[in-house]
Design a protein around this nucleic acid. Structure first.
Length: 405
RNA sequence: GUGGCUGUAGCUCAGCUGGUUAGAGCGCUAGGUUGUGGCCCUGGAGGCCGUGGGUUCAAAUCCCAUCAGCCACC
């Protein structure tokens, strides 16, 4: 029998799963567990293992974004071959099309899209506030107009949990309010209270509806006000979620501000639970957030930028569309082990972009996702080896030092 | 051969009752992109206005000639 990469992966799972069965009781939901294996004593960076019924996820982890049930341009086999352990889906998009009931009939997202590893669904809170035309807070939720056909819809914390349950993800996010930046303090504070109330209702609905099939995170907001962030985190922790998300960042604030907000949040969050920084970010941003104790990330950066002709490497970003790539008959990164770098040249991929060929975004996306996953693996290994501070400095110097053009 | 139409940026074309520095879309080129609308945004380069002559203070624009392409007729 031919041993496929996915088969090899299954063998790894069974070994690792045995090792962490003991800790599952702590987290209280069968099939799900999270355990911190090692913490960097200097920075607070953590290496851990997050387990769902669908896969073992080594943290810190990057989760490729698959908004509409697909990581754009990639097949599920390809994602599996580069060893992605968990991908994202989006409630807003999948609710509007094809609809949660259809997905449920298909056996949930796992069955529908043919992905047997973990899935995390975002609540759609971000999209409702960033994408839909008209949105109005009501006393029980939010009304909005579809960006597809203009039809009116209504989300409540309860209905979103129900939709996400139909979608069948392993890890789910509650409906939250995402406010724009900049936001004045009063508005931010008021919004936080809305998100907190919704979080409490989401938790109650989740306990009633989900039946232990998924775990729910609490999303912490607070704009760029440290005291607000701290208070919100405290209250979310009191509600006792399975994990915690840090939301509302990377929306235009200065990077220092963003990292300060991450720090005040992770300092208050319980050490034994996973932390997820939503929507971040550039490779160096992720390293900085891991430094401050974050475990999980998602971002459109590697996929969207790839479609626009920019990929990431350890030497910074490389703009494949640039004219000077035309005769560079060499891989994107000669040291990269990804399927693209093993076979194709920058010159060829640039040609594909110039010609508008569908293979161009596919190859660029595959490389950049591989890079993000590989970067996370190396970072995790350095935490386990006890040399994360050195690894971090070397990575940042090299990545920020020059553009790989 | 005769009559008509058209020649303006790499491409498709605006501008043509004469009046700042000749424009647009696409393409090219360079930036941007942080819980994704394969999107979008922002810069830049690029024109002897087919060619030659004339009228005029002033011509892509009006006149003459000429060249090229297309159409119709012979």
């Amino acid at each position: 029998m031919r041993i496929t990469p996915s088969y090899r992966f299954l063998q790894i799972i069974s070994v690792e799963t045995r090792g962490i069965l003991i800790s599952q009781a702590v987290n209280n939901i069968p099939g799900f567990s999270y355990e911190v294996i090692k913490t960097c004593p200097v920075t607070g960076a953590r290496a851990g293992i997050l387990t769902t019924p669908h896969s073992v996820i080594e943290t810190p982890v990057f989760m490729p974004v698959g908004t509409q049930g697909t990581v754009k341009s990639m097949s599920q086999e390809e994602l599996q071959d580069i060893d992605a352990r968990i991908i994202l889906g989006n409630t807003y998009h999948l609710y509007l099309r094809p609809g949660p009931k259809l997905v449920a009939e298909a056996g949930g997202l796992h069955g529908f899209i043919g992905w047997d590893r973990s899935i995390l669904t975002d609540s759609g809170g971000f999209q409702v506030f960033s994408l839909s035309d008209l949105r109005k807070l009501t006393k029980d939720g939010v009304s909005f107009k579809s960006h597809i056909d203009g039809s009116t819809h209504h989300f409540t914390p309860e209905s979103v949990i129900e939709i996400e349950h139909d979608l069948g993800a392993d890890i789910i996010m509650p409906l939250d309010e995402c406010i724009p930046y900049p936001a004045d303090r009063d508005y931010a504070a008021k919004s936080c209270r809305v998100t907190e109330k919704w979080a409490a209702r989401s938790k109650e609905a989740h306990e009633k509806i989900a039946g232990g099939r998924s775990v729910l995170f609490g999303i912490c907001q607070g704009s760029v006000y440290p005291d607000l962030r701290e208070k919100v985190v405290e209250r979310m922790v009191e509600m006792d979620f399975w994990g915690y998300s840090i939301g509302g960042l990377a929306v235009g604030e200065a990077k220092d501000e963003m990292f300060d907000m991450v720090k005040v949040s992770t300092e208050v969050l319980p050490k034994e639970k996973p932390r997820y920084l939503m929507g971040v970010g550039f490779p160096d941003d992720i390293v900085e957030a891991v430094t401050r104790g974050v475990d999980m990330f998602d971002c459109v950066m590697p996929t969207r930028n790839a479609r626009n002709g920019t990929v990431f490497t350890y030497d910074g970003k490389a703009v494949l569309k640039n004219a000077h790539q035309a005769r560079r008959f060499e891989p994107i990164d000669p040291d990269c082990e990804c399927p693209v770098c093993k076979k194709y040249t920058r010159a060829y991929i640039r040609h594909l972009f110039q010609a508008g060929e569908i293979l161009a975004p596919r190859l660029a996306t595959m490389h950049s996702i591989y890079f993000y996953l590989d970067m996370m693996r190396r970072m995790r290994q350095s935490i386990l080896d006890g040399n994360f501070p050195e690894w971090r400095e070397e990575f940042l110097n090299r990545f920020r030092g020059r553009q790989n053009d």
